[in-house]
């Protein structure tokens, strides 16, 4: 009975993610309208047969912008997590496996970074790099490193004294070989779930930064940026904000479900 339920959640999560991928592909192949072309006559137009989700304050087709916006948001989230997970993995592996001085130095540095609120830290880095899609990807990537490092460190600490690690050590395997060929595959569940959770955090973080006006710059589209635009017309056209909000919630919900399902499957 429980097994069946677990399977169901997994299937729901997978189909949600499939819908998102389909939307991204749709946006890649062709959008109904050019997401950057303005038309004053269509300012804040309601949804119609021509413009399914209506138009924004510059008369741009909302559906087209959402299709492109989801892609931007996803790419930023992906890039952020790749940077965060890669550097976090290196830091976590070294500190967790070796311990000692390296651990102390890197982890205290880690704690220092972690003690800043993440938005504030991203703001500082963006102030240094300038705003834009690549810049916020890098900034958020750096902000994400410490949490990955902590998680991966604890996993490596757990594994380093396992018998199988001892026995390959006794076969004369070097530290790098033990760390990345023997231990890494064994922590994949933790790594995978934290990647998916990190993905969600990145989506939210991008939305927050774009909302503040320092993330993705107009006329590009991202969900956060569109939500920020929609806010000004909340009373005139509530549908605008609701539509964008719906897609954002859908995106996060899908990945949250996926991470849950993955974790439960691994412990089944």
């Amino acid at each position: 009975m429980r097994n069946k339920k677990r399977g169901l959640q997994f299937h729901i999560a997978i189909s949600f993610v499939a819908v998102i991928i389909a939307l991204v592909l749709w946006g890649l192949i062709r959008t109904p309208y050019d997401p950057k072309v303005m038309d004053v006559s269509l300012k804040l137009a309601k949804s119609s047969a021509d413009h399914l989700l209506g138009c924004d304050q510059f008369g741009r087709d909302i559906l087209s912008r959402i299709l492109v916006g989801i892609r931007t948001t996803l790419m930023i989230a992906l890039g952020t997590n790749l940077i965060g997970a890669f550097i976090g993995l290196l830091v976590g592996a070294v500190t967790g496996y070796f311990g000692g001085l390296a651990d102390e130095v890197l982890m205290r540095f880690n704690d220092a970074v972690l003690s800043f609120p993440s938005i504030l830290l991203s703001l500082v880095i963006i102030a240094l790099l300038g705003s834009g899609t690549y810049q916020i990807t890098i900034a958020m990537g750096i902000v994400f490193v410490p949490s990955y490092a902590r998680i991966i460190r604890s996993e490596f600490m757990k594994c380093r004294n396992m018998d199988y690690v001892q026995s390959v050590r006794l076969m004369g395997a070097g530290a790098l070989r033990i760390m990345f060929i023997h231990i890494l595959p064994n922590i994949r569940v933790t790594l995978l779930t934290s990647l998916v959770i990190g993905f969600n955090n990145a989506v939210l973080c991008e939305a927050a930064l774009s909302f503040l006006g320092i993330g993705v710059q107009p006329p590009q589209a991202s969900l956060g940026l569109m939500l920020s635009d929609a806010q000004a017309y909340l009373f005139a056209r509530p549908g605008y904000a609701l539509t964008v909000g719906f897609f954002m919630v859908f995106l996060i919900l899908s990945f949250a479900l996926l991470s849950d399902a993955l974790r439960e499957d691994a412990h089944a």
Partner: peptide
């Protein structure tokens, strides 16, 4: 020396092999 000259077998056969290899 380890591995080529000195070999070792541990107590728990459950834990001394890497479960994913």
């Amino acid at each position: 020396l380890q591995g080529s000259e000195i070999g070792m077998v541990f107590q728990e056969p459950m834990h001394s092999l890497n479960p994913l290899m």
